[in-house]
Amino acid sequence: MSEAAPKIRIRGLSKAFGPKRVLDSLDLDVPAGRGMVVIGGSGSGKSVLIKCILGLIEPDAGTIEIDGRNVLTMSRSEREAVNAHIGMLFQQGALFDSLPVWENVAFGLLARRMMRRAEAKPRAIEILAQVGLGPDVADLSPAELSGGMQKRVALARAIAARPDIMFFDEPTTGLDPIMGAIIDALIVAQVKRLGATAFSITHDMASAQRIGDTVAMIHGGKIIWVGPAHAIRESGNPYVDQFVRGSSEGPIKMEVRR
């Protein structure tokens, strides 16, 4: 039986900042239509990994293929075309505070000239409804919303252009456990509805198990374990065990400096 080609294929990815080697010849496959969660401690390179895939940081070496094409050798316009099929939920939401909520949600649709402003607002209100927000928030500024509502708006913006691949950077950070669970449920529902591939990074184990089919652990710039999300507590890997237990005793030594 031949295995289906991965949606994202990373090989030999390396990135250093000065003497600090953050990613060290990292390999990872993200299967199409599945939820992959990368876990790891603070400063382990999770954010650098996701930024390399999104084209926000240029790696020193390696390849990143999306649908079989190496995105690192693409021209800027080709890369923008790939990004048109990608949705990203940033850790702090990264909503544009100079724009009202509805323009934030419709930003990608307007930027890619997919529709005119007059059509975009009703469409943005529809998308806001999908993440549980009413039309009354459409004209508010992002600064007028609570953290949970901002996260929902950011999710609405990420799903607006019906992406094939969705990236989530610490989706529950800064939220209380109940709101975290609500955001996770929304993420799972929207990813399923779109049939998208989901790639998340988090250090929240409860969130990782809720949104991931597969979990990979990053440590020392490499992926040291990959397995099904439900089996993470029986991984047999001392690094994963320590991380899941949240124990200070074990092979992982946290660095004080970044």
Binding site: L56, E80, I86, F90, A94, G108
Partner: peptide
């Protein structure tokens, strides 16, 4: 101040992911 705040709150990265230069 505006662009600096946008940089440190990832808003400039968000523009890139939304296919906007």
């Amino acid at each position: 101040a505006e662009l600096g705040t946008m940089r440190v709150t990832d808003q400039i990265d968000a523009l890139t992911t939304l296919s906007t230069n």
